[in-house]
Simulated assay, not measured.
Amino acid sequence: MMQLKTWALALTLGRVVEATILQNGQVRETNFPETKISDLSAYDFNTYDADAAEISYKGRWDSKKVSYWSAPGFVFGFSGDTVAITFGKDTVNGTLIGYRISGMDWIFTNVTVGGTHLLVTPETLGIGETYPVNPQRFEMRVSNWGYGVQIDKVHVRTGESLIKIPPYNRTIEFIGDSLSAGDFQSYEGLSSFAYGVGEGMGETEYYVTAFPGICVADQECWGNPRGQVHQWFYSSDTSWRATEIWGDNPEPWDFEKMETIPDIVVINLGTNDNNVANNVSAEAYVDAYKKLIQGVHGKYPKAQVVVMVVPLLSNLNPEP
């Protein structure tokens, strides 16, 4: 009987572990709230286009307001207690986004192609919590590095407005691969190494130009057709959806229109170059890394560049 009870307990615990994800000792929510509006005509909105001057985009977005790379987002101030966003045709269905009011906890939801999602209501965490400090600050970030969204419209209640939020005075950019992008992390881009450092610095703008599997050398690595020495200069990443949108003629990144210029650039690359499956020679690796650093200095002349050391580079040996 004791043995049967032991097996029953083990099976019960097994089911609990299998069905529950613990994060820092707390159950992590995976059933995110439904935010899509079924009947847009039932709402009375003041609507802004995606290129409204009041919206400050963070990270890499192309001229169509399509997001790329890891944890891209935007910020604006708003009056009232309602915010809704309409997502365009180049949104990947089911993309997970995080949004928050005035630095409160992230709220997550899955968004849809062409859908209008009601993200802020009078009951949303953070509404009214910063009074008398105004305006309230809305921030949204794309959590999935492999997916993305297109912003079509931003809505607030009729009679209310968006307000431009000045950027912070300090900026850091991360150029990297899976570690920086958040590959296999619980919330991907919003639980990555790069996000943790950038957010943890406080009052700092952070951009994460990273994609899993990418090499610094300009060659195919784990499905990425180009390396960072090439792709960093473009709006889009090396994903399948970037190819669907831009084909073989991706849009160059407009460095001149960046809201802030990075003071610090952290480069963490080389793990994929080091993998024998990608067959990158030491000469190609070093040459590409030097060119990338030179390119960063060319675009950000005053930036401090920090190169993270990649361990175990024993495979990057020159050919005899």
Rank of each mutant, 00 (worst) to 15 (best):
R157F: 09
K164D: 05
K164T: 06
I165F: 08
I165D: 03
P167E: 15
Y168Q: 06
Y168G: 12
N169Y: 12
R170L: 09
R170S: 13
I175V: 07
I175E: 01
I175Q: 02
I175W: 14
G176D: 10
S178W: 03
L179N: 13
A181S: 14
A181H: 05
A181Q: 03
A181M: 14
G182I: 15
D183K: 06
F184T: 15
Q185E: 13
Q185V: 14
S186V: 06
Y187F: 15
Y187N: 10
E188F: 05
E188R: 12
L190M: 14
L190T: 05
S191V: 00
S191D: 00
A194W: 00
G198M: 06
E199C: 07
G200F: 00
G202I: 12
G202N: 11
G202W: 13
E203S: 10
E205K: 06
Y206R: 02
Y207K: 11
P212L: 03
P212I: 10
G213R: 04
C215M: 07
V216Y: 00
A217E: 09
Q219M: 07
Q219S: 13
E220W: 15
E220Y: 09
E220D: 09
C221T: 02
W222P: 03
W222Q: 15
G223N: 04
N224S: 11
N224H: 04
N224Y: 02
R226H: 14
R226S: 12
Q228P: 02
V229E: 07
H230D: 06
Q231G: 01
W232A: 13
Y234L: 10
Y234A: 09
S235H: 15
S239H: 06
S239M: 02
S239Y: 04
W240M: 12
R241H: 10
E244H: 07
I245T: 00
I245W: 09
W246T: 02
W246H: 12
W246A: 00
D248Y: 08
D248N: 10
P250T: 08
E251Q: 07
E256S: 10
K257D: 01
M258F: 06
E259R: 09
E259Q: 13
I261M: 11
I261S: 04
P262D: 03
P262A: 04
D263Q: 14
D263H: 11
I264L: 15
L269M: 10
L269T: 05
L269G: 01
N272E: 05
N275G: 01
V276H: 13
N279W: 13
V280M: 03
S281H: 10
